[in-house]
Design a protein around this nucleic acid. Structure first.
Lengths: 284, 284
DNA sequence: TTATGCAGTTCCATTATGCGGAACGCCGTT
DNA sequence: AACGGCGTTCCGCATAATGGAACTGCATAA
């Protein structure tokens, strides 16, 4: 349970506009400006394992009682937070509406959807679409194998990029300098025996991914799960991402995965092309 | 210049926690406090039909250029907003992560899920779970009939309560005074020929719903779509909602819907009971 | 019952923070 | 080359967030 919680400093402010780093998703910690503070608090309740009450939140911030209380009140007034009868805080439903719009308004997702659906039908396995967000991967969509559907976890979830198929594919799609810079800021964690935890190993892995346009996750994130992935890029901004076909290794051997390589690469290429068609013309 | 929506300062305070009104979802408009202003802007881009650029947003606010620009910058810094290369604003991905937590951490949804799945399997039609949020219904979950799944719209979406099955069921589950108060604040819109648009008609409809524990949407919201619904309530706070089985009327006649009444009511009752079991003990 | 303490809520003087009018710079257009 | 629209930046001003402290209410202990 709760092992790491940061402590949200307060000496900040100063460089908000120019600020580049962003609190992707997994535990924000920053908190610049009034909005930032509010979002930090929101993140705190969002990513806590157990329900948090006022005192718990107080213990995790450096904020004084009065301030924290007002922040919570504001968040509640805005529908971003709710209070359970036992005074513990839950995320508010307004987030759902917002996210629903964010999700189905997302162009990358819209464009990729039919392609990954086809890929799912062709392989019969779970297909993911993720995009790189600073040093993490955020999953935007998935077509699940069986499972009576459900948004079920995953979508919206941020995962490390150095040990996932789409993560490595996306990193490989960046220019080497950019990738190296991001890698330098990563903190590696050995999720499984085969997780890549050295900068050098990762760099050379990216090199080989660049060479053949395909990346594999050889049970590097979850034991018993592996996948083939290929990079997708929206040439416009600098959004890069990837798609993957994931399967349990006991049922689908590496050979089969390799057999899908062409299909996956081709699908990724098609998505990238569709994206440039859709986003290119709209230039200014 | 400022028109309205300016001052508002601090005569609120006072009743913030207890505050009941809230900017559900469909266009907030309020904007109290710095956070409120920010969320108003966020809503603006969230619920706009077409991509909004800076000048478009400027036209829809009473805020001066500098202010609006800073607010947008802050939202971007927080990952709640993003800028497309053509300078139009899109919702940020951080919302997805937040919403994912809000969704699968939601107790009502967790408890109801197996029940509505069973209901879906029994009827073969689309089943919804929604909860009442002030005067609107927010859909929390759904089991879709066919349709290769996808979160596809709906979840997180706010709909009027006076013309939907779960909306009317939920209203009927409130005590009459509360319901009347909320009804008094509604603005009716004749979505279809059979939409109820008078307070009296709605009140008596609720009366009959209270009598037999079942509500119907007789194509009152979307032409050609009707449903059976029953109220679900979490006795704790004052959260009320409902579940429904929805189908196109050309394929499923009213008679069939009525035949499902018992099943729907029983499922709703079971959910309510499970909720009281799960939420009751945790009092303290 | 009365005492004790902890959790949540409210108050208000202080000042950091967001505000907003105006100037600036970048492009595409005439 | 000059214009005009649009996004971005600056900086003095005052609004709105801050946070220390007092207050309330509900527990458990005496």
């Amino acid at each position: 349970m709760a092992a790491e919680q940061r402590s949200v400093h307060m000496d900040n402010h100063g460089a908000s506009m120019t600020d580049e780093r962003l609190a992707t998703n997994g535990h924000s910690t920053s908190g610049t400006g009034t909005l930032g503070k509010a979002m930090s608090v929101l993140d705190l309740v969002a990513f806590s394992e157990s329900p948090l009450r006022f005192k718990d939140l107080l213990a995790q911030t450096t904020q004084p009682r009065g301030t924290l209380h007002r922040q919570l009140s504001n968040l509640i007034d805005e529908g971003l937070l709710e209070v359970a009868p036992d005074h513990s805080y839950r995320l508010g439903l307004r987030l759902l509406g917002l996210a629903a719009r964010a999700w189905d308004g997302n162009e990358v997702r819209q464009v990729a959807a039919p392609h990954i659906q086809r890929l799912h039908e062709a392989t019969g396995e779970t297909v993911h679409l993720g995009i790189l967000r600073d040093i993490e991967v955020v999953y935007l969509d998935k077509f699940d194998a069986r499972q009576s559907v459900r948004m079920h976890s995953q979508i919206g979830k941020a995962s490390p990029s150095y040990c996932t198929g789409v993560g490595k594919a996306a990193l490989a799609a960046l220019d080497a300098a950019d990738a190296s810079e991001r890698i330098s800021r990563m903190r590696f964690h050995q999720h499984t025996p085969s997780t890549i935890i050295s900068v050098d190993a990762l760099e050379s892995e990216l090199e080989s991914i660049r060479a053949d346009g395909i990346s594999f996750d050889r049970e590097e994130h979850e034991p018993g799960i592996h996948c083939v992935a290929a990079p997708v890029s929206a040439h416009d901004g600098n959004t890069v991402g990837g798609i993957s076909v994931t399967a349990p290794s006991y049922r689908v051997p590496m050979e089969t995965l390799k057999g899908w390589s062409g299909l996956v690469a081709e699908t990724a290429r098609a998505i990238t092309e569709d994206l440039s068609l859709r986003m290119g013309p709209r230039r200014s």
